[in-house]
């Protein structure tokens, strides 16, 4: 299989997940220009209910709920944009990977497998993009091409 075709196939899940995170999952709880008007979120603001959810995880999450809620929502909403573009792919993928592990084990674990599926899907994609980067269908490739 030609390398460009492998890169194209591996780029599709990254782009789809980035799009869904930036336009749906993330923007519903983190203020972006395209966040739903009903959510009443200002720019880069995390939804009022999310720190309360995070505090219920206990431990260090209960000590800094606003911090972890903001970072988690940021990694979904803004990380989704970077994942979609393939820009700073490894950095944002790693952040997203950590966020999804928290979502799986701290938020959805008791709600059963069905409720874990979205976070698990994003987790698998973030895992391979953390290791492999964007491939040639991302801005990272264009930025580093000249130095190769």
């Amino acid at each position: 299989m030609p390398h460009w075709f492998q890169d194209l196939l591996s780029a599709i899940p990254r782009i789809v997940c980035g799009y869904l995170l930036a336009t749906n999952f993330g923007s519903a709880k983190f203020g972006l220009p395209w966040s739903p008007a009903d959510a009443n979120l200002h720019f880069f603001e995390v939804a009022f209910w999310f720190p309360n959810d995070v505090a219920h995880y206990g431990g260090i999450f209960a000590m800094f709920p606003a911090f972890f809620a903001w970072i988690g929502a940021f990694s979904e909403a803004v990380g989704g944009i970077f994942l979609l573009l393939g820009l700073q792919t490894r950095l944002f993928s790693f952040l997203l990977l950590l966020t999804m592990l928290v979502a799986i084990f701290m938020q959805q674990w008791e709600n059963g497998l069905w409720n874990m599926l979205p976070a698990m899907g994003f987790c698998w994609v973030a895992l391979y993009t953390t290791l492999l980067g964007s491939g040639r269908f991302g801005i990272d490739y264009l930025l580093t091409k000249s130095s190769k």
């Binding site: 200002h42 880069f44 939804a47 606003a66 911090f67 903001w70």
Partner: peptide, 13 residues
């Protein structure tokens, strides 16, 4: 300090 700053970035309820 960073964590304290971010508490200001939570939507007002």
């Amino acid at each position: 300090i960073f964590a304290a700053m971010l508490t200001g970035c939570v939507q007002k309820s």
